[in-house]
Amino acid sequence: MTIQDLKNKNLLLFQAISGSRSFGLATENSDTDIKGVYYLPKEDFFGLNYIPQISNETNDISYYEIGRFVELLQKNNPNILEILASPEDCIQIKNPLMDLFKPEDFLSKLCKDTFAGYAISQIKKAKGLNKKILNPIEKERKSILDFCYILENNSSVPLKKWLSENGKVQEKCGLVSIDNTKGMFALFYDELGDLNYKGIIQNEEANQVSVSSVPKGEKCIAYLFCNLDAYSTYCKDYREYWKWVSERNEDRYNVNQNHGQNYDSKNMMHTIRLLQSCEQIFKNSSLNIRVDNRDELLDIKAGNWSYEKVLAKAENLIKSIDHYHSISKLPEYPDRDKTTKILVEIR
């Protein structure tokens, strides 16, 4: 079933403009997101063809089957509660039956986990993005040799530098583990190449150094330390950084680069907005998604706030949420029986 099928078969119960336009944060470049609710015909609902959600390829148009819609409302999902609380000037289609659903029937203390919890996860993501922007990783991947060092007197020398300065190659080296140590090896060298040492690594993709069988009487010429922990951390950071590069939204990334604040300013604007909505829920026991601080939020989106200032505002909002949550008269959870009864009545 497609979005057009929903319209052709007159299955829509609700449709509204969502996102920035419903929040009162739209600018001339803002996209128009559409969200809605539909019901399935009996043959699909009772049969084996239950379809909980229908979206377009970019997910900026999404419709939820009414059962799925109520299930997510009962879980206090922020996006779904915001659809239910759509301002009147954003509602395009509304079957009178939808008036049976009221946001206050679903608001509960669970919103602290869903609204604030999601916002906090976005702050953590922003910190990770901040780290990636400020610490780019070269495309050419380092090998484990870059994490090996030769001990000299009371200091250490990078292995590659030591090999170069001493006219040696890693392929002729033989390593022997040193008992009761981690990452420490005695290094032997096979100048003639007839002792079959395995070298320090067997290829550039190796994830650990090689050890060799060394004949008795051979003389150790150096001690090598391999920092495997640092290499593992580097591999993880490298993988995550280049995955982010391949998936990032270039337009938004360039905006963030242009304002020079080194964080995703649009994402952080919506994070602050989400925290303010959460504060309002516990302060007033209601949800009004149209913001009253448009200029402040758009200032954040424009990158006019430092990263530290945005984080400080978020932390203050979280403290306020904790306070109002502790004195809120809202129930711990939505009344599942009452709201399920409304769903049955609508079906």
Rank of each mutant, 00 (worst) to 15 (best):
V214P: 12
D295H: 12
Y50P: 00
L107M: 00
D113Q: 09
G193R: 08
I133C: 05
E88P: 02
E191F: 12
V70S: 08
C220L: 03
Q202M: 08
L25W: 09
L274S: 09
N288D: 14
S320D: 15
R239A: 13
N316G: 12
L84H: 04
K75Y: 05
Q170V: 04
E152T: 08
E240Y: 07
S155F: 09
K102T: 02
Q53N: 14
Y223N: 14
I34A: 06
D33S: 04
C235P: 07
D89R: 12
L187S: 10
M184I: 13
L134E: 12
N8V: 06
I83N: 07
I120A: 11
N203Q: 09
N79G: 05
I281S: 03
K127M: 04
K124A: 05
L100K: 15
K182S: 03
I61F: 04
I66E: 04
D322M: 07
I150A: 01
S18D: 05
Y307I: 02
G19C: 11
K338Q: 02
I3W: 14
P215S: 00
F147Q: 02
S326W: 01
F101P: 10
K9V: 03
L175Q: 04
K168S: 09
N95I: 06
M98G: 07
S326G: 03
I93E: 03
C235A: 12
L81M: 04
E250G: 00
L72M: 11
L228P: 00
P215C: 00
T233W: 02
S246M: 10
S121L: 09
E28M: 10
N130D: 10
T340G: 13
K172G: 07
D299I: 00
L224R: 12
L187D: 09
Q4H: 11
D264I: 01
M269I: 01
L73P: 08
N49D: 13
D113P: 06
K168M: 15
R273N: 14
A222M: 05
T233L: 06
I54S: 08
L311Y: 13
L72N: 08
I221D: 14
D33E: 14
E240A: 13
I91T: 10
E345F: 15
I80L: 07
I91R: 09
E138S: 15
L298R: 09
K142C: 07
I54G: 08
E138K: 15
E250S: 09
M98F: 13
K42I: 12
E345G: 08
I221F: 05
V176Q: 05
W162Q: 02
